[in-house]
Computed example of a mutant assay.
Amino acid sequence: MARSSTLNVAVIGVGRMGADHVRRIREVVSGARVSAVVDADADRAEAVAARAGGCAAYTDPAAALAAADVDAVLVASPGPAHEAALLAALAHDLPVLCEKPLTPDPASALRVLDAERRLGRRRVQVGFMRRYDAEYVRLEQLLRTGRLGRPLLLHQRHRNVTSPPGWTSDLLISDSLAHEVDATRWLLGQEITAVTVLRPAPSGDAPAGLQDPQFVVLETDGGAIADVEVFVNCGFGYQVRAQAVCERGTAHVGDGHAMVTQADGRWGGTIAQDYLERFEDAYDREVQTWVDSVRHGTPTGPSVWDGLAAAAVCAAGVRSLTEGGRVEVELPERPSLYG
């Protein structure tokens, strides 16, 4: 597209995440507009379209992708619907920003990768928004300089106030841990080769049958070890933290830098209650960067390969959770397109 052109975006899936992206494109992001919204719930699609203004509402993604005024696609539907939307977008040669997961399993992710390879150029960016968080960006830049020496350990935490209705033990890995999987690969610049999931006694506040919390150990091809505490019913707030332990020092992010008050003999602040609050700025930067890159040529953020790698690690994690023990990650050879 010409740099002066406005990018017309179709948003597929306008539940909480998708509706927030519609708002973001309308109110925050420059160089783009929402030209279509798609949702299986026709009433919801119509309501979001009315708020967006000048926007068509669809229940069929194929109809939206075939519209003349759609230049790009933002996929925010549930994970199991991603493969069909991505393959349809690639068939139209449309650039895509796809919320994680790319797809729920490695086999479907590989089909998306093969479709993109046949095009011969990158069209898909995966929504691993940690890569756009200011604190995480500073940590990645510091580690890349080598000032602290080689990273040896990476300690991470992922806590939610409560789990959504119907949440399963597998989803703690395939949905929650997926972010730490990508953050580990990105921060360390290494692939994850094996996963071990440990099962502490479940919290009494977790729904019956839910293994929460979980403690995950990730091994990398560079010899580093990453561990992740995933606790989705902690009850007090949304917390995401990471600490890199290197040969000559440590660095950590995620303690939060919100306002702290001191009055009446007390001091304190607030803890974010969900991901949209904690990572609002990161989402803004992610979508703006995607829009700019597409208008100038090609998506530049996390690729289909990153989505496939995360799916493969999570699949190994689910096996470890179910069967016990250490499970090696199975990945194909990395194509040159993603070099």
Rank of each mutant, 00 (worst) to 15 (best):
V245D: 10
F236P: 00
D212K: 09
V232A: 01
G237V: 04
I225E: 12
Q211D: 15
A208Y: 02
A244T: 09
D227E: 11
F231Q: 00
G237Y: 12
P207D: 07
G222I: 04
N233P: 07
A224G: 05
G235V: 09
V228M: 03
V240A: 14
F236Y: 13
F236D: 14
G223N: 10
A242L: 07
I225C: 11
Q211W: 11
A206C: 06
L218T: 06
C234I: 00
A244Y: 11
E219L: 03
P207N: 04
A224W: 14
F231Y: 07
G237E: 08
I225W: 02
Q214P: 10
V230G: 01
I225S: 02
F231A: 08
Y238W: 14
Q243A: 14
A244L: 09
V217N: 06
A208I: 01
V217P: 01
E219C: 01
D227M: 02
G223E: 02
Q239G: 01
A206V: 07
G222W: 12
P207H: 08
L210S: 05
D221W: 12
F236V: 06
G209L: 09
A224F: 09
Y238V: 00
D212L: 01
A206I: 04
A224S: 14
L218I: 09
F231N: 08
V216H: 06
Q214C: 10
Y238H: 15
V240P: 10
Q239M: 12
A242F: 13
D227Q: 12
Q214H: 02
P213E: 04
G223P: 12
G204H: 02
C234E: 12
P207W: 05
F236I: 05
A244D: 11
V216R: 06
G223L: 02
G223R: 11
G235L: 08
V230E: 00
